[in-house]
């Protein structure tokens, strides 16, 4: 069974028919070609598939493509600008906030949303807000440092 959708992915509109069972993450990877969004656990635990749907970080493996009809989606591919990396990407780079890199796109997408919405961030708060993202390599310390740095930079720029 199919359903028609019109979804904006990183400023590009995508109008097509998809199977009703198609998850948003599979649409992003297979239809929109945004392979930076990856599937980790496929059970809503790990957060590797985190993208922004109408400005909110969500897990795209636990959302139907049909539910995103009419929505605007931002994936990791849409973060960088012509001037280079997004400040969050730069902070992850500078703080070595990744090892194998599989969870990174999801964590960066959640982190960007966190810094946009929370203006008073400390280590404890960040650790609580990234509970929905699992990283099996880093032990999180450098990730937290990177987000703190990006938050400070956002504040200076504001």
């Amino acid at each position: 069974m199919k359903t028609a959708v019109s979804i904006i992915v990183n400023d590009r509109r995508c109008e097509t028919e998809v199977p009703t069972t198609m998850l948003l993450v599979d649409f992003l990877r297979e239809v929109a070609g945004s392979k930076g969004t990856v599937v980790g656990c496929d059970t809503g635990q790990c957060g590797c598939c985190t993208v922004h749907v109408d400005g909110d970080a969500v897990k795209s493996c636990t959302m139907l493509t049909a539910q995103a009809d009419g929505a605007s989606i931002l994936t990791i591919e849409g973060l960088a600008s012509a001037d280079g990396m997004h400040p969050m990407q730069r902070a992850f780079h500078e703080h070595h906030a990744l090892q194998c890199g599989y969870c990174t796109a999801g964590i960066v997408m959640n982190a960007v949303d966190i810094v946009t919405k929370h203006h008073e961030l400390d280590e404890r708060t960040i650790r609580r807000l990234i509970e929905g993202n699992l990283c099996r390599c880093t032990g999180y310390s450098n990730i937290v440092d990177a987000i703190l740095e990006a938050a400070r930079e956002a504040k200076r720029g504001a």
């Binding site: 809503g44 969500v58 897990k59 509970e131 929905g132 993202n133």
Partner: peptide, 9 residues
């Protein structure tokens, strides 16, 4: 409840 991604849905 859950985590912030879950709380957005």
């Amino acid at each position: 409840i859950g985590d912030r991604q879950v709380r957005h849905r």
